[in-house]
Design a binder for these strands. Sequence first.
DNA 1: CGGTTCTGTTACCGATCAGTAACAAGCCGG
DNA 2: CCGGCTTGTTACTGATCGGTAACAGAACCG
Lengths: 217, 217
Amino acid sequence: MGEKIAAVLDRATSKPGDRSPTSACCSDGKPKPRDRIVATARDMFHQHGFRPVGVEAIAEAAGTNKMTLYRHFGSKDELIVECLKSVAAEAEAQWRVLEARHAGNPRAHLVAWVREAADCVLADGRGCSLANAAVELTEAHHPARRLVELCKSAYRDRMVGLCRSAGIAQAENLADALSLLLEGARVSRQSVGAEGPSAKFVRTAEAMIAAFASEEA
Amino acid sequence: MGEKIAAVLDRATSKPGDRSPTSACCSDGKPKPRDRIVATARDMFHQHGFRPVGVEAIAEAAGTNKMTLYRHFGSKDELIVECLKSVAAEAEAQWRVLEARHAGNPRAHLVAWVREAADCVLADGRGCSLANAAVELTEAHHPARRLVELCKSAYRDRMVGLCRSAGIAQAENLADALSLLLEGARVSRQSVGAEGPSAKFVRTAEAMIAAFASEEA
DNA sequence: CGGTTCTGTTACCGATCAGTAACAAGCCGG
DNA sequence: CCGGCTTGTTACTGATCGGTAACAGAACCG
């Protein structure tokens, strides 16, 4: 472990030579190539997976070219890592929004999380890019693997903290159970479709929360 | 759906010109090339994923060559499908063993399933090859996608049947919940490792079964 | 033995793709 | 207006990989 995710995620969007506070917005509405590339690659990787998407296709879809891409990212793997960082950062931002909205009411936060997670499952047929990366990028020392582990682990910590502050006695057990449910729903959605077991995610998660809540000593 | 899985799976190991009852065992212990190829490819695909494993590597690892491979399989995709069929057939066989062992005691069958599923999760770091295929093979009309959907759907039906015969009132809900847990445990095992949420699979699944069982009207 | 079927070997094609070189054009600050 | 930095363009390399052709040898069965 050792390394804090906060530090890793900080390096996600900001670069040493950063000038503008909005981080690379060419005064007109068009973002700078680097950000366009990350945003485009993130979508394409999410949609089609990592291996089948070529760097040339990414660059073209981002309205630029391969050469510019390689001036910002040393390799395709590096770009992948940057995309995953972007995904993780967005997820953390969403979490914070939810946290702020239900400040002081962790129980409401918990049920809101279930709803939002369900939306996330239903929204698109492809699950979590982080998990997908772990499935697809099997090389033991691929830089993405370490990041995925870090992010998932951090997410788990947040869930445990939320459950704990919601007064759940077995906070870790509930947090892990909910994590498994969500992860399962997302992958099940991909293999059997939206009509399969993933359709029961909300119902099951809510029942589980209720069961754990009624056990407070 | 229309097509029965039984029919699909039947085509898995048997071919039109099948002579020996043991299906391709060269009198000596060494299986015939076709079966060696399927077995080897199945392992390699499972370990490293589908895209990164080349047909040449498979053939060599199976103690044969690419040409012989292409005499038995029209394409790499076809080989992939055959491997997935083999995986599904093996899973179904294991299910039947469990079913026979706990014949007449579906409740014991259910808890045995949890244990075996947990072993399966812990055994190797890579999850279910079928689910992995759905994640990795994103082309909408890839032949493997249809098979995966079929198999997962069939597995779900078996689970529902088991829960029902175990006297669970909300059999479908429990079956889906357990499916989500297992699927989630397997993918979580890949992303965060064995110490993550997947470690709680048995505990959670058993608690869930108990909860559903106590609700019989 | 003779013929057929299955297998091994080698060499090859064509396509895709990550990554690089070299040069021209634009933008922006001083 | 000038000089540096970023971007665009084109062309290229080298490697990998799916799939095929053609021929030679082995096993099997009548």
